[in-house]
Structure formats: C-alpha cells, structure tokens
Amino acid sequence: MIHVHNLHKTYRGALEPSLSGLSFRFPKGSIAGLLGPNGAGKTTTISILCGLVKADTGHAEVFGLRQDLAHRESIKRLIGIVPQQIALFPQLTAMENLEYFGHLYGLKGRPLRAKIDAYLQRFGLEKNSNKEIYKFSGGMKRRTNIIAALLHDPQLLVLDEPTAGVDVQSRSMILQFLREYNQQGVSILYTSHLLEEAQSLCSEVAVIDQGRLVLQGQPHALIQQHPECRNLEDVFLHYTGHALRD
C-alpha cells in the first residue's frame, strides 16, 4: 500500500533535516500507525506521500504508484486526507462545507447529498448539518473534518492526529468508525501521540525519530519483543528516549 524509500528532506532555511533516509512499507488493507515524537518527520512524510512536498531524494509509492508529477493527481484520487487542523470553513455550515469539498471532487446532485447525509448520520451530526462550523464543539469539528475526506471514497485514508482534543465519546466513535471503514477494505494511515489508542487501533506501526525509522512491526509483537515494556508507550520511550523535543 505505502512504500517510502530512503526519503531525505531539508526545508529551506532549516538547520536540521526533517527526514534523513526514512524507509518503511505498510501492506494494503492495514491500519498503519506512523508514530514519533514532535518533529520526528511524520507530517513531512504524509506531505510527501500526498504530493504536497517534494522529497530532496528518495521516493514514495502509494498502491504501486510512484509519487511524482505524472502520478500526483492519480494518487490524490486514491487518498483521503484528514489534516491535523480543522480544515473547514468556520463560517459555513457542515452541509455547505461538505457540499463544497464534494464539488471539488467532482461530485454533485443527489448522489453527493445522499453520501453527505449518510456520513452526517453515521457521525451523529445530522441535526447540526445546518449549523456553522464555528459553533461546533471540538469533537463535532473533528468528525466533520473526517467526513470531508471520505466523500470521494478513497482507497487510503490518511489521518493526522484525528482524535486530538476531542472528548472520550467522540474519540470512541471515531475509532469505531475507522475500524469499520478498514473492514470495508480501505487502508488507513494514522498518526497520533496517543499510543494507547494506536496500540488498540493499528495492525502495524512504524516509529520514527529525527527523520529515521527506529522501529516497525505489529504493536503486540513489539511489546512481546521487549519484556521490560508493558505497552506500546514503553516501547516507544525505550527507542525515542525521555528527552523533550520542543
């Protein structure tokens, strides 16, 4: 599904590289967790996968398509992105936002409306569909943010910290949805700082730090390989250390 090979990226004016030879591979149909401390290179990796940022060297592939100018648009069609930010227009209602992004994907009319209605219902937002986004709670915004990435039926859903700042109920609904969505055959790539969540959700994780892969495998297998660690968070700290990354 996803293959990144020897990615290097240093942003203009930056003292340190964001990625220093990062390589990993996730299989199709998995819920893959891309984990790492702040500044590890997770967002840069996702940006390269989506074609927003160009790697200095190395390459990334999505479903066998190499991320380059020739395949950029094809890959965009395959991927649904849920950015870390609430990437919606606050002054527009949930319905207006979703209609707009649907139109940008080339969807229109009744099929689009039916899809939006179904997702709003699935995420418990049907009663608030005509409310402006700025009036939404954090959890409602997060859920709408996810719906906007689903309208075009992506084969790969990329979520950058989708549960940051939401209450337990919203988080539970989101995670439940992701499991169900994955069971429909959609691959999921997910980043989070909530390692307990990653441990329960992901079928495979890659831990990166300072732009390099430090660990990859199935969460339970990784925990078993490290008897001194009780959970994925312990494993994570074991490899990335306790030093602050501000």
């Binding site: 648009e73 992105i81 950015p83 609430i86 990437a87 919606l88 227009f89 606050p90 940008l104």
Partner: peptide
C-alpha cells in the same frame, strides 16, 4: 484565514488544478 485554518491545504489535496479554484 484559509491558509491558517487548513482549508487551503484540503483544497490543495483534492485532485484537480488549484488554478480553477
């Protein structure tokens, strides 16, 4: 604002020319 709230990012992630938008 669109750049700050991420909606521009979402638009750029959608296939098709940004020029049209």
């Amino acid at each position: 604002r669109e750049r700050g709230d991420g909606s521009l990012l979402r638009i750029q992630l959608i296939p098709g020319s940004y020029l049209e938008v």
